Simulated scan of single mutants.
Amino acid sequence: MKPWILGLTGGIGSGKSAAAAHFAALGVHVVDADQAARWVVEPGRPALARLAEHFGADVLLPGGELDRSALRAHIFEQPAQRQWLEALLHPLIRQEIDRELALAESPYAILVSPLLVESGQYQRVQRVLVVDVPEEMQLLRTVARDSASEEQVRAIMQIQARREERLKHADDVLMNDRDLAWLQQEVERLHRFYLTLRGDPS
């Protein structure tokens, strides 16, 4: 049996990373789309050379790694460049995610992605779990965690799918408005249910 794939998402500060960590502690194979996105632009990977070729050497740090803030500046000034960047990176990120998911040996695997809905990645999973939290709590948690300003956090929240949009795609919703012990208990409850579901025989 091939493992079936659960998409796990939630807005910034919702607690999706804590939920994913607890699923992993229960033995579930977890793949993080953000990690895959970082991995495809590491030194020595073809994407990084293409970026330097296209945007110029100023997108590289002295050590040869990607200078994310320099890249952001390029994209910010020229929105058309964002499309070029996405056309380059999205297929590579997709391949990386597929490669990682193929290694799963647990009955189901999890793809964690903050942009599961916006990027269309939800079409590649069998079920979607949204870790949800009231927006005010999302804001307070993120400001406290990242020492970010309220404006910065609101700007990130604007880019991410609206809460209603995310919830529309959800098969399951984990309301994370209590403490970590509650979150872990909910993850364990969902895990027991998920173990009863079957993937594609193959």
Rank of each mutant, 00 (worst) to 15 (best):
H54C: 06
I12S: 06
A33K: 05
D58V: 09
S119W: 01
Q78L: 14
V28S: 02
A19E: 07
F55K: 01
S17E: 00
R68F: 07
V125R: 02
L85I: 02
R45S: 02
L48Q: 08
A24P: 07
H22M: 12
A24R: 05
E65D: 14
A24S: 13
A73K: 02
R94M: 05
G27D: 03
R124H: 13
Q95Y: 04
P114Q: 13
A87T: 11
Y108H: 10
A49N: 06
A36E: 01
Q126A: 15
G27I: 12
G56F: 08
E42Y: 06
L61G: 00
F23L: 02
R127V: 12
S14R: 05
Q123C: 12
R141V: 08
A70M: 11
V28A: 10
F23T: 07
Y108E: 12
L51E: 04
W84M: 13
R45D: 06
A25S: 09
V128L: 11
F23Y: 03
A52K: 06
K16W: 05
A25H: 07
R72E: 14
V31Q: 01
A104S: 06
L115S: 03
V112D: 08
V41S: 06
G15T: 00
W39I: 14
D32N: 09
L140P: 02
G15D: 02
L71S: 00
E96Y: 04
H90Q: 04
I12P: 00
D67W: 03
R82G: 05
D67T: 08
V41T: 14
R72C: 11
A80N: 06
L92M: 08
R141C: 11
H74C: 15
L140F: 02
P43F: 10
D34Q: 00
R45M: 14
G64A: 07
Q78A: 15
V125T: 10
L92Q: 02
L51T: 02
S69I: 09
R68W: 04
R82K: 13
V30I: 07
P114R: 11
A57T: 08
S17N: 03
S113M: 03
I97K: 01
R72H: 13
A70Q: 08
H74W: 12
